[in-house]
């Protein structure tokens, strides 16, 4: 018994120093180097926010240093999550250093086509309020479009999956209009909708609704027929079968449709905001592209990517809650 217990004891005594988190230390080094290079080497052309970027990097370096020293004393759950991010943190530190050197310091990747990190930071600093308004406008358009799109798409998909007659007429039409790019609808939407805002909502709704409708229909169709027989033999009516079999049974497919709809709807946001919008991230990107404000374009793309990633994460959480019953489900 004692010799088994001794093995880890020896191992622990072997490390004299308190265990440092190596990846954290390495990433801290990367951030510190970026900060030093940014501060000491002069920019080829002025970008603004150079000092701010350097201090943010220095702050991050300090934070990572403290984290790598204290990680062993933190709760295990937190430790594991931080450790998993380690290689990425190292890569980000190195990436920032190379990015900084190749753009601001050496000018290999020149203005206006490329921007150093402080160039993007400068966009947020100088144009922050306008970007914030654009975010809110885009979220309003996306929210209204996505929610109405998936609501109609889900109802349509249930009907298509449930009723053979509805499917006979509806499925060919859906398959026909499914591949049509959202921008192709613009002329028609101008005629049918009272304002360009409504037309924009429609385009976002269409892009998110169609995958949800198709996947919901296929989800209902994929349910084991025996489940309906079980319910019918116990006297269940159509309504019970729809709400208690078709709806929960199709949910795994529905979520695939929701993920597709989420990505499509973000992609068409730019198109939708071509329709006479005055604010919005898509509009901002087009506006800045026209004036060669590529730093602004990159800065906005990062915001869009971050919002989209956040929404995907949210959808994953909802899916985890609703689909816990699946065997071998991986969150």
């Amino acid at each position: 018994m004692s010799d088994v217990a001794d093995v880890p004891e020896i191992g622990r005594d072997g490390h004299r120093l308190p265990t440092l988190w190596a990846a954290g230390l390495l990433s801290s080094l990367g951030f510190a180097a970026t900060a030093a290079v940014t501060l000491i080497v002069p920019d080829v052309v002025p970008w603004g926010s150079t000092a701010l970027f350097a201090w943010i990097c220095a702050g991050s370096a300090l934070l990572l240093l403290m984290l790598s020293a204290s990680l062993v004393s933190l709760p295990e759950r937190f430790q594991n999550r931080v450790k998993a991010a380690g290689p990425w943190l190292v890569a980000i530190g190195v990436w920032l250093l190379l990015w900084e050197i190749s753009t601001a310091k050496l000018g290999w990747l020149p203005k206006p086509f490329f921007s150093p990190p402080q160039g993007l930071l400068q966009v947020y600093v100088s144009d922050g309020p306008r970007l914030l308004i654009c975010i809110l406008y885009s979220l309003r358009l996306w929210g209204l479009g996505f929610l109405s799109g998936i609501a109609v798409g889900y109802a349509l998909g249930l009907a298509l999956g449930w009723s053979p007659r509805f499917s006979y007429w509806g499925m060919p039409i859906l398959k026909l209009i499914g591949p049509v790019p959202a921008s192709a609808w613009i002329p028609v939407t101008f005629f049918f909708f009272p304002s360009t805002f409504h037309a924009s909502i429609f385009i976002v709704a269409l892009s998110s609704g169609i995958p949800v409708a198709i996947l919901t229909a296929s989800g209902v169709g994929s349910i084991n027929r025996a489940y309906y027989d079980v319910a019918r033999t116990m006297g269940a009516g159509d309504w019970y079968q729809i709400t208690h079999i078709a709806m929960p049974g199709s949910l795994p497919h529905v979520f695939v449709g929701l993920f597709m709809g989420l990505y499509y709807s973000f992609a068409v946001l730019v198109v939708a905001e071509m329709l006479g919008a005055k604010y919005g991230l898509g509009w901002y990107i087009q506006f800045q592209t026209a004036y060669s404000g590529y730093a602004n374009v990159y800065a906005t793309l990062i915001i869009m990517a971050a919002i989209c990633a956040g929404l995907v994460k949210l959808l994953f959480i909802i899916r985890g809650r609703l689909l816990g019953w699946q065997t071998g489900f991986i969150a």
Partner: peptide
Amino acid sequence: PSRILAFQDATLFPWATVWNNVATGLAAR
């Protein structure tokens, strides 16, 4: 419900708990 059929596969609804599965008939009616 006076004539109930039980199948070769258990065909329990995977999305419902055992309790809710057993409650299917009463709930449906």
